[in-house]
Computed example of a mutant assay.
Amino acid sequence: MTSTNGAARMTTINLPVSRAKARPERSLTLAAPFVLSLTTVVAMPAGPAVAACVQSGSTVTCSGATNTGFGTGAENNLAVTVQSGASIDVGNAQKAIDVDSGNTAINNGAIVVGNGGKGMQGINNNVFTNNGTITPGTGGMAMYVAGNNNILTNAGTISSTADGTAGLVPIGAGNTAINSGTISLTGLAYGISAIGATILNSGTITVGSSTGTMGAGVFLLDGNTLTNTGTITAASTGGVGVDISGDGNTVTNSGLIAATGAGGLGSAISGQNNTVVNNGTIRGGTNGYSLFSSNFLASGNSITNNGTLTGVSHSWGRATA
């Protein structure tokens, strides 16, 4: 590693999964039978509105509340909108919106997916936007693409208390992940996990909690460019604000990258040929490090600090304040 002052393609990603309580389904029990006479008219109260996603030409509109997602993974060139006040709530291993390529999907309502599910999934040239809320279950992801030239944007809220969750997951080449909203995943989680993506964070990313362990605000495999002007926080024991695990990544921080849990790392580098430029603040947790690298075989890494490193930085077995 040199310090100055002043991609491999994956189509799946395995996240840690823990046991979660199943959501109880509501049941309706009538207290007693009743009889309608031929001369009596009884007005029955309407239940909650239930409406599927309806397609008309290349436009798909989701309104009301539905437990059925849209798409089979083969749809192209559609405009899908979950309206404000509408919701899609699907079960384990299901997708709320599952399309192929060239689609635009906007969530203005609420999306909830069960364990191992995905809020939005696509392949190439899709534009996915969340202006509402997305809640993934254990091992679930809010937005996932395994292809090229997609744009994933969170301007709303992605939140979960489950383990093994992830917010934005672009895997491919030429993808862009943008967070200007809130990603709050309090289990063992990854706010953004990427290969070959341009990542822009001006919002808030928080992973883990004071009672949890591990997790990373942003997890970088190979060939990513991260620009942070917002806040990225890992709150759990041993958590990492920005984990640079792969090769050829560039990180520019003008905001705050922090680990608040015991032994937490502001940023960790274990790959090669990575560049970190800090113009803001990178902070380690109690008994942790602001910057940490323990890979003796790594080479070509460069760190330029124009801002503030709070805590100790560590490289190749040697620590400096």
Rank of each mutant, 00 (worst) to 15 (best):
N274Y: 07
S58W: 02
T153V: 10
A93I: 12
S63H: 05
L221S: 10
I195F: 15
T66D: 05
G280S: 07
R283T: 15
G317I: 06
S56Q: 14
S294R: 10
E75R: 02
G47W: 06
S58H: 09
S193L: 14
V251F: 01
G203K: 03
K95G: 08
G117P: 02
V54R: 11
L265P: 03
S18H: 12
L28K: 13
N67A: 13
N130Y: 04
A258M: 08
M214L: 15
N124I: 00
A96E: 00
D89C: 04
G307Q: 06
V242I: 12
V145S: 13
N107E: 10
L36K: 12
A268C: 14
V50K: 13
L30R: 04
T104V: 12
M44N: 11
V17M: 12
S159T: 14
S236I: 06
S160A: 08
A146L: 09
S267V: 14
P33T: 11
G212W: 02
T304I: 14
N125H: 01
T72K: 05
T81G: 08
V80I: 15
G132F: 01
N125K: 05
G223W: 04
A319C: 06
F128I: 14
A162W: 03
C62E: 00
V80W: 05
S313L: 13
G91T: 09
C62D: 00
G164N: 00
N76Y: 04
G164Q: 00
G285P: 08
A194K: 02
L297Y: 10
S290F: 08
G167W: 01
G181D: 04
N107S: 05
R9E: 12
G317E: 02
P45E: 04
F128K: 06
A51H: 13
M1W: 04
M143P: 08
V17K: 11
G73Q: 09
G264V: 08
I111V: 12
I88L: 12
M141W: 02
A86L: 11
S299M: 11
S210T: 15
I134Q: 07
S245Q: 13
N14W: 04
G187Q: 09
I134N: 03
K95V: 04
L220A: 10
G6E: 11
T229A: 14
V41A: 14
N77V: 01
L297T: 15
A259P: 10
A268W: 11
V60G: 02
P24D: 15
A189T: 08
L15G: 07
D89T: 15
V218T: 07
G307K: 06
G285A: 07
R23P: 09
L220S: 07
A189Y: 01
A86M: 12
K21F: 13
Q83H: 14
N253S: 11
S56C: 10
A166R: 04
I232W: 05
C62Y: 02
S87W: 01
N103F: 03
A216Q: 09
S180T: 15
L30P: 00
V312P: 07
G317L: 06
S270N: 10
G241A: 08
G284Q: 10
T213E: 13
D163H: 06
Y190L: 12
I269L: 13
G164E: 05
A96M: 06
L15E: 05
